[in-house]
Simulated scan of single mutants.
Amino acid sequence: MKLVQVSDIHFGGENRKAVEAATQRIHEEAPDLVVVAGDLTLDGKTSEFNAAAAWIDSLPRPTLVVPGNHDTPFVGPSELWVRFTRPWRRFKDRFGPEDGVDWRGPGLTVTSLNTARAAQLRWNWSKGAVSRSQIRRVVDVLKAAPSNDLKVVVCHHPLMEVLGGPMTARVRGGVDAANRLVEAGADIVLSGHIHLPFVTAIPFGDGKAQLVGSGTLSLRERGAAPGFNVIDADSGCVRVTALAYERGRFEVWRTWAFDRR
């Protein structure tokens, strides 16, 4: 099976040439599922959401989309009012529920977890959070999945800090969530947020569950060219290929491989 993982396109600040080239490359990859791991927009504006929806509609189906911290309005008094009263309305109108979306295909179970918050009891609202009720729901989905399925969770913020990453996620409840998801059988947790592709083992259970992050398709680069991930899985192994947009085309930037549980 094959997944494409994109995140942090930030329409309103997107790298237009990279986005255009990504559209063609994703069609060439012919994935079983396209996962969009948050931060579709730059400022949560209606025009940015419209651009994001048009682009995602141009990609191969099916798609699974989760929001990120940039996908709530926050520029100007009227936008802040929307943020506090209907933070996910623009997202939901175009992509469906912001949390708890499940997708199943042959040998594959995917579920989503919204780690973004419109407001928090801390200064930096861009950081992530996971509630106990969210953890319980995802655990139930994973435990109900067929035992041989590849079990994937999609969120925006990495649940645990990435060593050497260019920024932090500081997800409240993230370490507990990672531990519980591994106990429930998660194989991969896909995320974005830090604008740099990575693969790192979750240090719980048998150590075979992995955090997998994708880069950005925006102008907000943090140490890597614009890019996205292609994930290939068979019965014994998962391979992650980070593609980078350089010299007018997507080329392999780095690859990882790890054994399935």
Rank of each mutant, 00 (worst) to 15 (best):
R180P: 13
T200A: 10
E246R: 08
D187H: 04
K143L: 12
V34I: 01
P166G: 03
S214K: 04
I188W: 01
R247F: 15
K17M: 03
F95A: 04
Q24T: 15
N124M: 05
E28C: 00
V189G: 10
L196P: 11
N69Y: 07
V82G: 08
L64N: 07
D176Q: 07
H193Y: 08
F11K: 05
N50Q: 12
T115R: 05
E29K: 06
V65N: 08
R61N: 05
P73S: 00
S214N: 01
A178G: 11
L181M: 10
T41V: 15
G185R: 02
D99C: 09
M1Q: 12
A209W: 14
G192R: 00
R220F: 15
H193T: 03
R94C: 00
D93W: 05
F11A: 05
V65Y: 09
D32T: 08
A118D: 10
G12I: 04
W123G: 09
S147E: 10
T168S: 15
A186Y: 06
L121T: 06
D57A: 07
D140N: 14
P60Q: 03
V153C: 00
I194H: 05
K208Q: 11
I26L: 10
A145S: 11
E183N: 01
E221I: 15
Q120Y: 09
N69G: 03
V65Q: 12
V139A: 05
V238S: 08
L190Y: 02
G44I: 09
R89Y: 12
E79Q: 12
K17C: 06
R83A: 12
L108R: 11
R86C: 14
R136C: 06
A18F: 01
K208L: 14
W55M: 00
D234F: 04
A233V: 11
T23K: 10
L163Q: 13
G173F: 09
S78A: 12
Q210Y: 13
C155E: 00
G192E: 00
V212W: 10
A129F: 11
H10F: 00
P67R: 05
C155V: 14
H156W: 03
L121H: 13
